[in-house]
């Protein structure tokens, strides 16, 4: 048991373990994230491998890379990245997620530096990373431009940022809010505000303004027949993901 969990009492740890079990239950409350996760990971791993010349067939392909997972939640992305050998910092602005993620990493036998902090605070402290994962966060922040500028500062020269979010159009309103929140009840009502959604062109402009070079964008497309997600070169109409680099 590490020192961070020793500072809280046993009853608290039991509560965190229960919450961790909830985060990691593929059929539970976070089912939509679990369904999307393999496809997100396929994109992230392929982009990192291409950018840093790594071979995913190696045992520890991301060894030596320092990676920041912003909005890490229960660690659904941090843990896979640590398993692939990256040196991972998981940050979340929701304090309750941090001990939950720590408990689960310990159960998984992984070392991950989870912190209750924000991108802006990390940037101010002068932290630097090879990779910043910025997944499903930008649609929740008050000042997207300021936030993306902080992400840019967090990257080492030649670093890579992966950023995913939700497009703004009638279809995304129907799918992400009416579908996911009201019909399927996948997400709590009020999870998303449609006016905060960002189109791919707007996001590329924000990223470029922040001083990064957008290099790729793809859609995450849900197939309601097979209940699986896949990557698409053309369909960015609802969920989509981008890669950008910081000039060396």
């Amino acid at each position: 048991m590490n020192t961070a969990t020793q500072t809280v009492d046993a009853g608290e740890i039991a509560k965190f373990e229960a919450m961790a079990a909830e985060w990691w239950d593929p059929h539970g409350k976070f089912k939509p994230l679990h369904m999307l996760n393999p496809t997100r990971l396929d994109y992230i791993t392929a982009q990192i491998a291409a950018e840093f010349g790594r071979d995913l067939k190696d045992a520890s392909p991301f060894a030596g890379l320092r990676l920041l997972d912003i909005g890490c939640g229960g660690g659904l992305l941090s843990e896979p990245m640590a398993r692939l050998g990256a040196d991972v910092v998981g940050a979340d602005a929701a304090e309750r997620n941090i001990p939950v993620a720590r408990v689960h990493a310990e159960q998984s036998g992984l070392e991950i530096d989870y912190r209750f902090t924000t991108a802006e605070a990390l940037a101010e402290a002068g932290e630097q990373f090879d990779v910043v994962l910025n997944m499903e966060v930008v649609e929740h922040v008050a000042d997207p431009q300021g936030y993306l500028t902080a992400c840019q500062q967090l990257l080492k020269p030649g670093g890579l940022m992966i950023c995913s979010t939700i497009n703004r159009n009638p279809k995304s309103f129907a799918m992400a809010i009416v579908g996911a929140e009201y019909v399927m009840r996948w997400l709590p009502k009020g999870t998303h505000e449609w006016q905060k959604f960002i189109t791919p062109d707007e996001l590329f402009a924000l990223i470029a303004n922040a001083g990064l070079t957008p290099v790729d964008r793809k859609g995450f497309v849900f197939n309601p027949i097979t209940w699986t997600w896949s990557l698409s070169d053309r369909d960015l109409s609802v969920n989509y993901v981008t890669a950008s680099t910081k000039p060396a």
Binding site: P26, H34, L41, T45, L56, K57, E79, P80, R83, S108
Partner: peptide
């Protein structure tokens, strides 16, 4: 194999499913 290459816990139920 695919699960391990994306860093997933290959013995987790959602992978096996």
């Amino acid at each position: 194999t695919d699960a391990r290459r994306r860093g997933e816990d290959f013995a987790a139920l959602d992978v096996l499913e």
